[in-house]
Design a protein around this nucleic acid. Structure first.
Length: 256
DNA sequence: ATGGTAGACGATCTA
């Protein structure tokens, strides 16, 4: 089964690009971030017509996550269990096609030292607690999303320009490694150990034409999911289109 | 030193 994570930066603004990609690639599962709308304004019909069931955790204007699946979606949970006071829509989890999956939109963090950066680190702690609790079931679990962290300098086109900055700072990287230390794997790096391939290019400063990107979107796999991993990749093509999201879809294939 | 662009929304905020 093919599982994809994609920060679409507004599902309504990106509907044509999204539906075209779904039609061309036929993923079993699509994990969306930054849908930037509430459930009642989500373009359900255009996506249901392609054969998808949809679960949404929406929010007006900002954030918002969703799960699209060709199989029925069960046991939907919105928000992190250990972060019930969080009013931002950044996490949705469900079981579908025999796999527990989640779509997560980790806070951007704005800049090191700001309130938003502190909130990002708190969110990552609560995510860690929750991801730890999921491992007790010894299931195949895939947590896909925009983690807003480039794990190492290999994941940054120009590491010197980004040293210590938000998305690359040591505390953020430590928080990411702590998720891996629970037993999850960064799917992409398993079969692309040395590749400089990115998932996000800033709209500004000619980042896309210069390939000045960062790899900040990830699929984290539980041991049971890792054991079934067949292949992974990042499809840069949609980033080059007119009216593109600033993120590219990141995918993996799992033998179920 | 703090621009550059995009989306939602209707002045800025977030990224």
């Amino acid at each position: 089964m093919k599982i994809v994570t994609w920060n679409v930066n507004s599902v309504r603004a990106r509907l044509d690009i999204l539906t075209e990609w779904l039609r061309d690639h036929q993923p079993d599962l699509m994990l969306l971030q930054e849908i930037k709308c509430e459930a009642h304004s989500f373009p359900l019909e255009a996506i249901e017509d392609l054969g998808y069931n949809i679960a949404i955790h929406g929010q007006k204007t900002f954030n918002g996550v969703a799960i699209l699946s060709k199989s029925p979606i069960e046991d939907v949970q919105r928000g992190l269990t250990f972060f019930e006071e969080d009013i931002q829509a950044r996490y949705i989890e469900a079981v579908t096609n025999g796999v527990r999956v989640a779509s997560v939109y980790v806070p951007n963090g704005q800049a090191v030292g700001t309130d938003k950066y502190a909130y990002k680190l708190v969110f990552l702690e609560r995510l860690h607690q929750h991801m730890k609790s999921l491992l007790q079931y010894e299931e195949a679990v895939v947590i896909g999303g925009d983690y807003n962290i480039a794990p190492t300098d290999l994941d940054v086109a120009d590491p010197k320009a980004w040293t210590g900055d938000v998305l690359c700072s040591i505390p953020e990287r430590k928080a990411f490694y702590a998720l891996l230390n629970l037993g999850y794997r960064d799917g992409f790096r398993i079969d692309h150990p040395h590749e400089k391939l990115y998932s996000w290019w800033d709209y500004r400063s000619q980042a896309w034409p210069n390939d000045a990107g960062l790899r900040i979107d990830h699929l984290l796999l539980s041991p049971q999911a890792t054991d079934r991993l067949e292949s992974t990749g990042i499809d840069k093509a949609p980033r080059g289109k007119e009216k593109a999201s600033d993120h590219a879809p990141v995918w993996c294939s799992i033998d179920v």
